[in-house]
Computed example of a mutant assay.
Amino acid sequence: MNENEILAMYEDAGALLNGHFVLSSGRHSSRYLQSALVLMNISHATALAAELISKVSDEEIDMVVSPAIGGLVIGQEVARQLNKPFIFTERKEGEMQLRRGFSIPEGTRLLVVEDVITTGGSVRECMVVVREHGGTPIKVLAVVDRAPDAEGRFDVPFATAISLSVETHDPSDCPLCREGVLPAIKPGSRGAA
């Protein structure tokens, strides 16, 4: 599957939005990717997970983990196709945690899976939790990388199905705000940082 086919999935699902958006990082953007609209189609989720899996060797993975909520569907599908256990981290009172009775046996090698990455903050928080519980993150996979020119986001290898360079702005220096382009809306899964 090539990047144009993946981008077409987003466009066909109405998941590539244009407007004035507040990202999970708190930054503003004129484009937003709503992966949930793509991943609600099981055949799309299956194909995108297979694309991600092609970028990793399953022999090095013991378990798959995703930060909630964005990474849940694609992380579960990657784990299903790899036949590996799946867990997720989630925020409680603003702090990323491992809950719901999940545990990570000491030395477990985890594949971290996310839907869309811009700054990588949720993934880094997830990796901290994994390490605090005795696991070892070995690679990060994401369907979409919104900031392909960013370097050093993670201390493990990182691969993506599609790179889509989308300009983001600090809210204090957002041209969309200055130009009065609609109020900035937050269509994602959690409040801005």
Score class of each variant (00 low, 15 high):
residue 145 D to W: 03
residue 1 M to K: 04
residue 30 S to G: 12
residue 84 K to V: 11
residue 95 E to A: 10
residue 148 P to A: 05
residue 27 R to G: 00
residue 66 S to E: 12
residue 170 D to H: 12
residue 153 R to N: 09
residue 50 A to D: 13
residue 28 H to L: 03
residue 146 R to Q: 11
residue 82 L to Y: 04
residue 164 L to N: 00
residue 118 T to W: 05
residue 100 R to V: 02
residue 28 H to N: 09
residue 21 F to M: 02
residue 82 L to A: 10
residue 2 N to P: 03
residue 94 G to Q: 08
residue 176 L to M: 10
residue 53 I to Y: 03
residue 15 A to R: 11
residue 160 T to K: 00
residue 109 R to Y: 09
residue 22 V to G: 00
residue 108 T to C: 12
residue 4 N to V: 02
residue 167 E to I: 14
residue 100 R to F: 08
residue 26 G to Q: 06
residue 21 F to Q: 02
residue 177 C to I: 03
residue 142 A to C: 13
residue 187 P to V: 11
residue 173 D to N: 13
residue 6 I to E: 01
residue 91 R to D: 00
residue 162 I to H: 00
residue 168 T to R: 05
residue 154 F to G: 02
residue 106 E to K: 07
residue 88 F to N: 06
residue 27 R to F: 10
residue 26 G to D: 09
residue 59 E to L: 15
residue 134 G to R: 02
residue 5 E to M: 09
residue 13 A to T: 01
residue 85 P to K: 13
residue 44 H to F: 13
residue 190 R to P: 00
residue 15 A to Y: 10
residue 75 G to F: 08
residue 7 L to M: 04
residue 83 N to L: 12
residue 28 H to V: 05
residue 181 V to E: 11
residue 142 A to M: 02
residue 185 I to K: 03
residue 105 P to S: 11
residue 92 K to T: 14
residue 39 L to F: 12
residue 71 G to S: 11
residue 139 K to F: 12
residue 152 G to W: 05
residue 25 S to D: 07
residue 108 T to H: 08
residue 87 I to A: 11
residue 96 M to F: 00
residue 30 S to N: 15
residue 23 L to P: 01
residue 46 T to D: 14
residue 62 D to M: 02
residue 27 R to C: 01
residue 156 V to G: 13
residue 61 I to V: 15
residue 155 D to N: 14
residue 186 K to G: 04
residue 52 L to H: 05
residue 110 L to G: 10
residue 3 E to F: 04
residue 173 D to G: 02
residue 99 R to L: 03
residue 6 I to K: 09
residue 11 E to Y: 03
residue 79 A to F: 07
residue 173 D to F: 00
residue 176 L to G: 06
residue 114 E to A: 07
residue 36 A to D: 13
residue 15 A to F: 12
residue 183 P to L: 12
residue 130 V to R: 04
residue 61 I to G: 00
residue 79 A to Q: 14
residue 183 P to Q: 12
residue 6 I to L: 03
residue 36 A to F: 07
residue 17 L to V: 03
residue 152 G to L: 08
residue 84 K to G: 14
residue 134 G to Y: 06
residue 42 I to W: 07
residue 129 V to C: 00
residue 13 A to R: 03
residue 68 A to V: 01
residue 148 P to Q: 05
residue 184 A to I: 01
residue 74 I to T: 08
residue 123 V to T: 15
residue 79 A to T: 07
residue 190 R to Q: 09
residue 31 R to S: 14
residue 49 A to M: 00
residue 169 H to M: 01
residue 163 S to T: 10
residue 71 G to E: 10
residue 106 E to D: 12
residue 164 L to V: 15
residue 180 G to H: 05
residue 172 S to H: 07
